[in-house]
Simulated assay, not measured.
Amino acid sequence: MTVERRVVTREQLAGVARAALGGGRRLVGVSRLRGGSKKGVYRLAFDDDSTAIAYLWEEAENFWPGAPGAAAEDHTDPFSHASGLDLFEAASRRLDALGIRTPRIRLADRSGRHYPADLAVVEDVPGENLEALLRRDPQRAEAALERLAQALGVLHRHTAAGYGKVALVDNGGVSQGRSCEQVVLDRALDDLAEAASRDARMARAGDRLEAVVRALAAAVRPRTEYGLIHGELGPDHVLLDRHGDPVLIDIEGLMYFDVEWEHVFLRIRFGEHYRWLDAAGLDGRRLDFYTLAMRLSLVAGPLRLLDGDFPDRVFMGEIAEYNLRQALDFLPADGR
């Protein structure tokens, strides 16, 4: 099934553009950017050749089945959908305070005067993202990877005594659960059950995979301090500015958590280039447990998206299939 994403027109965003950048320039074009399963991302082009980016948080732009509504806004769940202007602004403030570059906000609006949804207009960082540079010129990308590693060091060394979304913890809130590992265990078991309901191979291996998940979780020792993590930092979420410095985007998932969770995702997404981002002092038992939990999440999540009208269906199916095989590899050889 091929699904076309909705299109937001120039006329619909003309008032947004004036509010963000004033009336001295005219909006001449609006184009949707690739990606974005929870919000719409559009490039605004002006008659003086300048550009900006608009983020739109509205139900029609959210492709996660069942995501809209009160349950999606429960920020006490560290893994609830990381979407919304509140999370975006809190993450932007925290990263700016740490000196970590993100696109500068030109307008943040909840009033509905300019558009019938929460929105933000931010600077358009020129140039390519790190994923494109790694494909085109891996050797040239090494400087960007080194700078990204430095930024991640600053991020991960910023700690808190509680875990959860920055918008919650920075305002004295408390997250659900007893610990990061318990939150991950609960989520992994839910992801396993959800994946098993959609794929016969996962259903056949469900009991054995659950036993492995529980055994890996039981080996993790308690922790009382948590680092700041992006939460979904692939190379496509790193833009490079004119100086080659990394600019982090899709920051709504910023939270205090075990940094091992971030490193598992970095290892998966950066592949051979992860060696630039590796860090000393990581807990091997957490890495093992979180790797399987992440694989299960990357099966259940894409399969859930395919229940809805997400447009890039082949790509999402490939993600689910690859991670399904990786999850099954955690089973003992004689139990596969």
Rank of each mutant, 00 (worst) to 15 (best):
G177W: 13
L209P: 11
V183A: 14
R178D: 14
Q176P: 03
L192S: 05
R187E: 11
L192H: 01
D199L: 12
S179L: 06
Q182R: 11
D207K: 15
E181K: 08
E194R: 14
A205W: 09
G206H: 15
G172K: 03
R204F: 11
N171Y: 06
A203K: 08
R201T: 11
S197T: 03
R198D: 11
R204N: 14
M202Y: 00
G206I: 11
L189V: 00
S197N: 04
S175T: 11
D191V: 06
R178K: 15
S179P: 12
R178P: 07
V174W: 04
A203Q: 10
D186Q: 14
A205V: 13
G172P: 01
V183H: 05
Q182N: 12
L209E: 09
D190Y: 14
V184N: 09
D207S: 14
D170S: 08
V183T: 11
S179M: 07
A203Y: 09
D186N: 10
G206P: 10
N171L: 10
A196H: 07
L192P: 01
E181N: 01
D186W: 09
A203F: 02
R208N: 03
A200F: 03
G173W: 04
L192Q: 00
G206W: 07
E181Q: 10
R204E: 15
D170N: 13
R201G: 12
V212P: 02
G173E: 05
R201Q: 15
R178V: 03
G206V: 04
D199Q: 06
R178A: 14
S197V: 04
R178Q: 15
Q182F: 03
A200H: 00
R187A: 03
D199H: 02
A195V: 08
D170M: 13
Q176M: 13
A195H: 06
G173F: 11
G206D: 02
A195T: 04
R187G: 05
G173H: 02
S179I: 01
R204D: 15
L192E: 07
D190V: 14
Q182P: 06
D207Y: 07
D190K: 11
E210M: 04
R201V: 13
Q176C: 12
D186S: 11
D170F: 13
V184G: 10
S175C: 05
L189I: 09
V212L: 04
R198G: 06
D199M: 02
C180W: 01
D207M: 11
E181M: 07
R178F: 03
N171G: 02
E194M: 02
L192F: 08
E210I: 10
Q176V: 08
D190N: 12
A211I: 03
A211V: 13
D170E: 15
E194D: 14
Q182A: 14
E210S: 03
R208I: 03
R204K: 15
A188H: 01
G177I: 04
